[in-house]
Simulated scan of single mutants.
Amino acid sequence: MRFLDKLILIILLSLNFFNNSFADNHNIYETLEIIKNDLKTLERAVYSGSIETSASTNQQSNIDLDSNSEDVLTRHLLKLSQVEDQFRQLTNKFEEINFKLDKLSNRLSKIQADNQIRFQDLESAISSGDNTTQLSSKPKTDTTKSEILPGSSQPQDLGTISYKDTETPETSQQIQSVDTTASVVTETFQAEEKILPQDLSPKKQYEFATSFLKVGDYSTAERAFREFVVSNSEHELAGSAQYWYAETFRIRQLYTDAASAYLEGYQKYPKGNKAPINLLKLGVSMVQIGEKDQGCKMINGVELQYPKANQSVIQKAKYESKKFECIKEDS
């Protein structure tokens, strides 16, 4: 509006000039009409430009706001996607760690169970040294039984085997039956460097050999117990040493060698502290190498041969008999 006011003022001054200069002009009215029309046209042009300018300004601001909103939304969506990816990765890592922990827990449970069994055997070996009176001096036999266990005073199939006769040049053993007993072969002990301290008493040597079992060095324990049995075959701990010698094979799943060592212990030390458990382990080893009939006969014969043995051994024999489905023969 200021622009129009100035323009009107200029026109009025021009009219005054025209009035002074052209007083005698009779066409002033026509000139004014022309100027009015021009002013109206100019006014419309000015108002139209301002409206278009304001409209374009509003439209541009709306476009800028929409563009800013889209940019903000896009940034939030990208951030949310990154958070989802990180959460997914953390979930996968958690599941992987949980799976590893389950495996580790199962492995520790197995190791704990295995160690518990071994320590129980060691504790029973130590405690049985003071409880020799619990075992009968002579095993009671059932006169109604027509069969006698192999390896007893009246040997039958298994008891008639001589270890020297079982030596063969063949490199592999063929398991057939106990009658031919290629499956039970004693190990020929070769002279090696002494393991047991020679300046110690037999009892200390026995404890020294047992220490290898406690740390899991079964190959060295095998040599140590064998050396003890050879050097102290008449000692009261020889039967126990022979039993642990056989155990070193069983723990390593060498069941044929274990059966041979158990059999030697059963025949040489039938009245030793470890005789009942030795007979039980002999029967189990026989079953594991494929001689189920002979093995079951020995497992079922533990209670008959050693009726005053520890109840844990008798209960273990019953469990193994049921486990291997051994059929007890009626009298």
Score class of each variant (00 low, 15 high):
23 A>P: 02
27 N>I: 04
38 D>Q: 08
33 E>G: 09
29 Y>P: 00
34 I>C: 06
19 N>D: 12
34 I>D: 07
25 N>V: 05
37 N>A: 08
18 F>S: 14
31 T>R: 05
31 T>L: 13
36 K>D: 00
27 N>H: 14
28 I>C: 08
25 N>I: 03
40 K>T: 04
39 L>A: 00
22 F>K: 03
11 I>P: 01
18 F>G: 11
33 E>W: 09
32 L>N: 04
8 I>G: 01
16 N>H: 13
31 T>G: 10
17 F>V: 04
24 D>F: 12
33 E>N: 09
25 N>A: 14
22 F>Y: 15
29 Y>H: 03
19 N>A: 15
41 T>Y: 09
25 N>W: 15
19 N>L: 14
37 N>H: 05
19 N>I: 08
28 I>G: 12
5 D>R: 01
6 K>F: 10
40 K>G: 05
31 T>H: 08
33 E>R: 09
37 N>S: 08
4 L>H: 02
9 L>G: 09
12 L>G: 07
4 L>I: 03
29 Y>L: 02
32 L>D: 04
19 N>P: 00
11 I>L: 03
35 I>H: 01
20 N>K: 13
26 H>T: 08
37 N>R: 03
16 N>L: 15
22 F>V: 05
19 N>H: 10
33 E>L: 09
8 I>E: 00
26 H>K: 10
18 F>Y: 15
28 I>P: 01
37 N>C: 03
6 K>N: 11
31 T>D: 06
16 N>E: 12
8 I>W: 02
